[in-house]
Amino acid sequence: MTWLLAIFQTLLFVALAPLLAGWLKWCKCHLQNRQAPSLLQPYRELLKLTRKQPVVAEHASWIFTRAPYIIFSATVLAASIVPLIAVDLPTAAIADVIVLVGFFAFARFFLALAGLDIGTAFGGMGSSREMTISSLAEPAMLMAIFTLTMTASTTNLSFAIVHVLNEGLVLRPSFVFALFALMLVAIAETGRIPVDNPDTHLELTMIHEAMILEYSGRHLALIEWASQVKLMLYGVLIANIFFPWGIAQGFSIQALAYGLLAIIVKLALLAILLSISETLLAKMRLFRVQEYLSFAYLLGLLGMLSHIILEASR
């Protein structure tokens, strides 16, 4: 039963991801005085792409054609271990938050390889930049996560969320720092403004788009979907770790429905926040990203230190 629920939660996660992307776009359009596409537009695009025959460059190897499946399944697996509507599901025990970071690394590894596979300058540029940014973002992210895991003394996400729930509403300085650090990292890792611009096709500014320039058809659909799932993953991490209230602790229908409602509201609010920041900010130069990410790292470090100095039991 719990396994079924876990599988259902994963499917729900993957199914809702395009909706979040659509909602984000909708908010952004309204903030920028543009006419918004329908909320279901991302679904239509994915469906359209899966129906098309993919065009692949002549000397592409198996890495290029298999990478989308690898990226997608790694991301889906990452989604399966993050509690969305309920805690204590059996999938959460398969892997902890460090493995989650590992799944992201796995997907990224193949994405970067696929970028290099064609042998055009675009792909190489995208891969190089992606690996640079991620290698700076990863320590910052783990620093923020360590703050949480040291407070809850577990790296299992489900247990950590339960711990935060049981503590009740306490203002912890370490969590405030960690929250901001994780938000900055999330923006960098999901390729949003001000680090990368998902809507641009200008070679000087793009990172993620440069890597997947050669993809088309179902391959592109998988990669796009995976990046939507990844965006939602970060959203859920932020929402459920720092504001876990509402998540189902039992498996009754009512609790689950309440949990679903709670996470939808939380994600919708986060998306509004993101769209405001994307509207207000401009994309920054590539070599400013290091300062941005070291700031995120610094926040994470401050969170850790304030946990050790202010909050630890001794």
Binding site: K52, P54, V55, V56, T120, R218, A221
Partner: peptide
């Protein structure tokens, strides 16, 4: 994704230059 026989095979083309 590969159940549709028409689009199952990939078309090979020159890389975008």
């Amino acid at each position: 994704l590969r159940r549709n026989l028409e689009t199952k095979t990939m078309r090979r083309a020159a890389a975008w230059d």
